[in-house]
């Protein structure tokens, strides 16, 4: 008797036209994953935001001005994952069972090569000792270990929630978790329902249908990293700006 576990491919579809830049996803993510706050006066690009909402304008004047908000987290690349190959000590891991790219902060020595290699600028380094105001450690999420100074961290599709869902399933004698048992904090928090999370390998899932739709695209598709985060928009300028197409064909060697 062989029992094979179907391979999952967790991913996300973010509808840019629904995102209004409120930032609830960023706050929900930081609270869920015990992401610390950097001190006052920190220079730009030193924060820790596993998901970061970019505000992008078309640089036009009223009344033609338009703004798009693009939430960018780790794109959980599926092919030639740029960060995995470069880590000298196997602290970046792609789970073959579900495609989640995760950072193992306990093993990371903080060389930051993965950050340099990531085209999405989605990896963050702990430049400071993480600090929480006195007393607030009791308010942290007990399911996620805070990281220490000097290591890299990033979005792992709320590993704590995935783990909890798996444990719950196991305690009930199930080997699989149901789609409604596992949801990322950002998707849950988005008031506009702009973020859809789920299993891209399940063709009937909402996320797979949206990702296959004509309005979907991936950030920097031309790099060939095959991100598992898809974006939707009807606005041409947003799509043209955020996705890139190869200017020439890749050549025979890559086919």
């Amino acid at each position: 008797m062989t029992k094979t576990t179907p391979k999952k491919r967790y991913g996300m579809v973010i509808d840019i036209d629904r995102c209004d830049g409120c930032g609830a996803c960023m706050v929900a993510c930081s609270l869920e994953n015990n992401v610390s706050v950097v001190p006052a006066g920190a220079a730009p690009h030193r924060g820790l935001t596993w998901i970061r909402v970019y505000s992008v304008t078309n640089k036009k004047e009223y009344p033609d001005s338009d703004t798009a908000y693009l939430p960018v987290s780790c794109q959980h690349c599926g092919n030639e994952t740029p960060c995995v190959g470069v880590c000298p000590q196997s602290a970046v891991d792609v789970d073959p069972k579900n495609g989640i790219v995760s950072q193992i902060p306990e093993r990371c020595m903080g060389c930051r090569y993965c950050m340099v290699a990531c085209p999405y600028h989605a990896r963050y380094f702990n430049w400071w000792d993480p600090e929480w105001p006195e007393g607030t450690e009791h308010l942290l999420n007990p399911g996620v270990t805070p990281r220490m100074r000097g290591v890299v961290e990033k979005c792992n599709f709320c590993h704590g929630r995935h783990h909890a869902a798996q444990e719950r399933a196991a305690s009930e004698g199930r080997s699989e978790i149901e789609p409604n048992e596992y949801q990322t904090a950002c998707a849950e928090a988005c008031p506009n329902g702009a973020i859809t999370f789920g299993d891209l390998a399940d063709k009937n899932s909402e996320v797979a249908k949206l990702a296959a739709g004509p309005e979907s695209f991936q950030l920097l598709k031309s790099l060939g990293t095959e991100p598992k985060i898809y974006y939707l928009t009807q606005r041409g300028w947003v799509r043209d700006m955020a996705t890139r197409t190869p200017l020439i064909s890749k050549g025979q060697s890559h086919d």
Binding site: A42, R46, G110, Y113, H121, R123, W127
Partner: peptide, 12 residues
């Protein structure tokens, strides 16, 4: 910690 440097998340 390395906050004493001027490196940042864009300049690993």
């Amino acid at each position: 910690g390395l906050f004493h440097t001027n490196m940042n998340n864009r300049f690993g």
